[in-house]
Design a protein around this nucleic acid. Structure first.
Lengths: 342, 342
DNA sequence: TTCGCGAATCTAATCGTATAGATTTGCTCT
DNA sequence: AGAGCAAATCTATACGATTAGATTCGCGAA
């Protein structure tokens, strides 16, 4: 059975409120009241006529006009460095769900780890007059003036910087670093390296601080550090570098699951056994870590809760929002030696 | 150094065209001409005054008003089943880049594999009067009436159905299935199973058709089939099932990299060696496949090209758009036996 | 019968931008 | 000098929805 026609509707170029009003034999005001459960009420008879007309015409309110008139587009925006990174994908997803639960749509945009692009995207969201912006910035002190001048609230999400006075939602990165390192120390490791994602602007990441602090507290010297991008490729390179190094630590803390996957790959390529030859703990708690070989012990971020909190901070009618830092938890699996494979 | 003030601007609630015009001492029309490189030209003097005024006021055009007036929001929308799936994440990312290159923003929305949600999202995009929609539908014949009645062009992306008359961009799924199976046959396998993602509405996926056709052409009987969700968990379950089965095929074709990763995990857990005990070829060509252990031989989709073509189909001024099917390519790695690990 | 009152409805202004058409300005050419 | 003309600018309307304030209607009370 071949389709008969490309388009069934006779190309009515979108009905407007006025069209509906005319067909229903009422004024545009009444239609608006019906559509919005408006500020005034309408008789059951009118309501019925209006609903019928809406159905007949396939009327759908024009969001642009509505946004113009009422100043709100019922839309939020999020800017992430890279949606291709599973952590940001799940974060964005969680935020979308939380926003949808409150009737807001979400625009997701990628900065591609470029500050210039990040700025452009924020500016774009500002000109769209979204009702709020979640910014996973690649710098510690992003420029929020575009948003401020448009009076658009923003929350810094998955925030690295510590000393911002702006509303933010993040995790205890330093605690995470400590947790990972203390766990490795508990396994008897004394030489613990760090594979750290490279940040722009030379900010100091809490994970690094935590790693260093935990070692110091235990009276151990910091092991080797490698700085590489937040990608699988980066992790792989780190692995190659570690293997060629003269002295190799007995354990490493890796700043993201994504990097850890690449790292494990490199170790596997040269026959280094994890965790017996080299123990690994990573960071994020993403799905990737659950299926790698061996399974990764990882410091998990409570993504859903963070998303909920971020949306609440943006939309909540509460006054000046404070920053929230969520606790991380250690998920023990095979890569540190807690659980055997298989 | 503690920040002195929360907001530096004295809460000017967004300058409008009129404000700029007043400050620059010209009419709103001139300002508009300057901002848009408008349909008429302005003197260098006026232009300079306007630009200065814009700078002083931090003026930024109101996208809602612009959209209302000109009927276009310079925005596209994409609906994917799950942004958390790396394939859709990279597809969405590629589409975003292609759209950005033409000055369009992109809204990404997740249907969560629910048809009801998918419909709601499409309706939402329709009411926002986006300039076009990319739909990765979970069904073969999605309902596009909302878009048609609003005269919003749509392209079916990563399209499974074969017989739609609607503009679509996809890959040769059947060719992909054949390619994978023929390759396995070339390795000497005679009993080849299939792990297929479950689609709603009982549509027949081209990958399955291709798998069956290739076996038939070679005079082989189809091996066991398992239908499981498009997730790592699904792949893992499939693995467990295969291992408990009485007779095990010597090779399998898996319908996505994501599932294959889970599958490999299950095999590893029970000590089955890949590819010696069981060869695997999967589908998508995502990054995941490059870092799994062993590395996955996979049928790759040309994501960037598809994204480019989809944007072109939506925005291109060419007349009635035809559907495009892109060829897939086989990436040979270790899981089929082509390349040894390490 | 007439007044008052509330409910239902309508009229019209508004949001910020874009642009067609009217108007002004400054020149050149005879 | 005056006509003619193009460039620059301005005026005013439309886009579609919302909603305050005006208007209409019907009905009960005096």
């Amino acid at each position: 059975m071949v389709a008969m026609s490309q388009r069934s509707a006779p190309a009515k170029p979108s009905a407007t409120l006025k069209d509906v009003a005319k067909l229903a034999g009422v004024s545009t005001a009444v239609v608006s009241y019906v559509v919005n459960g408006g500020p005034k009420n309408v008789s059951p008879l009118s309501e019925a006529k209006v609903r019928e007309a809406i159905r007949m015409l396939g009327y759908r309110p024009n969001a642009a006009a509505r946004a113009l008139r009422s100043g709100s587009a019922e839309m939020l925006g999020i800017v992430v460095p890279d949606i291709t990174n599973p952590f940001f994908a799940s974060l964005a997803h969680a935020v979308e769900e939380a926003a949808a639960a409150r009737g807001y749509a979400l625009t997701i945009a990628n900065s591609g780890h470029s500050l210039a692009v990040e700025r452009r995207l924020v500016e774009n969201l500002a000109s769209r007059r979204v009702d709020g912006v979640f910014l996973c910035s690649i710098v510690a002190e992003p420029d929020l003036r575009d948003l401020e001048s448009a009076e658009i609230p923003a929350v810094l999400l998955s925030y690295t910087g510590e000393e911002s006075d702006h509303c933010s939602v993040g995790v205890g990165l330093e605690d995470g670093g400590r947790l990972a390192v203390e766990h490795l120390i508990g396994h008897g490791h004394g030489d613990i390296g760090l594979i750290m994602g490279s940040l722009v602007g030379g900010v100091l990441d809490g994970r690094e601080t935590g790693w260093r602090a935990a070692l110091e507290d235990a009276g151990l010297r910091p092991g080797p550090i490698m700085r590489i991008p937040f990608t699988r490729e980066g992790g792989y390179q780190a692995g190659e570098w570690f293997l060629n190094a003269t002295s190799r630590p007995s354990a490493v803390f890796v700043s993201s699951d994504l990097q850890a996957v690449g790292f494990l790959r490199a170790l596997h390529d040269s026959g280094v056994q994890v965790p017996s030859d080299l123990a690994v703990v990573s960071f994020d708690g993403s799905k990737e870590a659950e299926y790698s070989i061996p399974r990764l012990t990882t410091v998990a971020q409570p993504v859903e809760e963070m998303a909920l909190a971020a949306v609440e901070a943006l939309l909540g009618n509460g006054g000046p929002q404070h920053s929230r830092t969520f606790p991380v938890t250690l998920i023990r699996r095979a890569s540190c030696g807690c659980v055997s494979e298989r």
